[in-house]
C-alpha cells in the first residue's frame, strides 16, 4: 500500500533530513562557540574575579543550570519581545533565539568545567609566572588557562555532545532543523515509527562522530600528566 522503507528513505526522508541537518549544524556550531566563549569568561571570572563579579557569575550559572532549557528557549523567543526598555525591544528570529538560548545555557555548564580545571592548577604556577615578571592577566592566559583547558576538555567536549542532542529543542520554536523537518515529514506521511527512528539514527551518528572528533582533539592536545583519566 505504501512504498517500502528504503524507497521512502531515498526519495523523501533522506533529502528532507539532509536539509534539516544543515540547519542543525547552523544552530549547533555558533551556539557551541558562544557557549565555549561564555564558559571560559564566566569560569575565569568565577575563580579570579573580584567578589561582586564572582557573585554575578555564580548567579548566572545557577540560574541557567537550575532551570530547564525549554523554559529558557521559550523565554528568549516568546518573552523577550515583551520586555521593552525605553520603547525598544529585541525581537529575535527563531534561529537567533535558539543560538542565544543554547549558547547561554551551554556557557553556564562549560564554566563549571573551566572553573574545575582552573582550581586544579596549583597556585604555585601563578606565583612562578609572576616571579618571571608576567602580569596576572598574562599568567592566567598563558600559563593557567592552557593547563586548565586540557583538564577541562573532556567535560567541555561532553557538554558539546549534550548541545548536539538538545539542539532538537529548536524545533519547538519552529526552526526547521533535523527534528523539525522530521516532524513535518511524519505528519505528511503518517510513517511515524520509520521517520522518528531514522531521525534517532541521525543523532546517534552525529553524537558518535562528535565524540570521535573530540577524542582526536584531546589526543592532539595531550601532554604527559594531563591524560584523560581512564575509567
Amino acid at each position: 500500500m505504501s512504498t517500502p522503507y528504503f524507497e521512502f528513505l531515498r526519495a523523501e526522508l533522506a533529502p528532507g533530513l539532509l536539509e534539516g541537518l544543515w540547519t542543525s549544524v547552523l544552530v549547533i556550531v555558533p551556539s557551541a562557540l558562544l557557549g565555549v566563549v561564555i564558559g571560559i569568561t564566566a569560569g575565569v571570572l568565577r575563580v579570579y574575579g573580584a567578589k561582586p563579579v564572582r557573585w554575578l557569575a555564580d548567579c548566572y550559572v545557577s540560574l541557567f543550570r537550575g532551570t530547564p532549557l525549554v523554559v529558557q528557549v521559550f523565554f528568549w523567543y516568546f518573552a523577550l519581545p515583551y520586555i521593552k526598555i525605553g520603547g525598544w525591544s529585541l525581537v529575535l528570529d527563531p534561529i537567533e533565539a535558539a543560538i542565544l538560548a543554547f549558547g547561554m545555557c551551554s556557557g553556564a555548564y562549560q564554566s563549571e568545567y573551566i572553573r574545575g580545571g582552573l582550581n586544579s592548577i596549583k597556585r604555585g604556577q601563578i606565583r612562578a609566572a609572576l616571579a618571571l615578571g608576567m602580569t596576572t592577566r598574562q599568567a592566567v592566559t598563558s600559563i593557567v588557562l592552557p593547563q586548565a583547558f586540557r583538564r577541562a576538555l573532556p567535560g567541555c567536549g561532553n557538554e558539546i555532545i549534550y548541545l548536539i542532542k538538545y539542539s532538537s529543542l529548536a524545533s519547538i520554536i519552529t526552526v526547521n532543523e533535523l527534528t523539525g523537518t522530521a516532524t513535518t515529514i511524519a505528519k505528511n506521511t503518517w510513517r511515524n515509527i520509520e521517520v522518528f527512528c531514522t531521525l534517532g539514527v541521525y543523532y546517534l551518528a552525529l553524537v558518535t562522530i562528535a565524540a570521535w572528533l573530540l577524542r582526536l582533539a584531546e589526543d592532539a592536545l595531550s601532554v604527559p600528566g594531563f591524560e584523560r583519566p581512564r575509567t
Binding site: 542532542k165 529543542l169 516532524t183 511524519a186 522518528f196 527512528c197 543523532y203
Partner: peptide
Amino acid sequence: WLFRGIPILVQLYIFYFGLLA
C-alpha cells in the same frame, strides 16, 4: 550508547507517536 545518543525529544516522539501508538 543508544539511550544516551538519542535526544529525549526524539525519543518522546519515537515512543509516543510511534511505538506505543
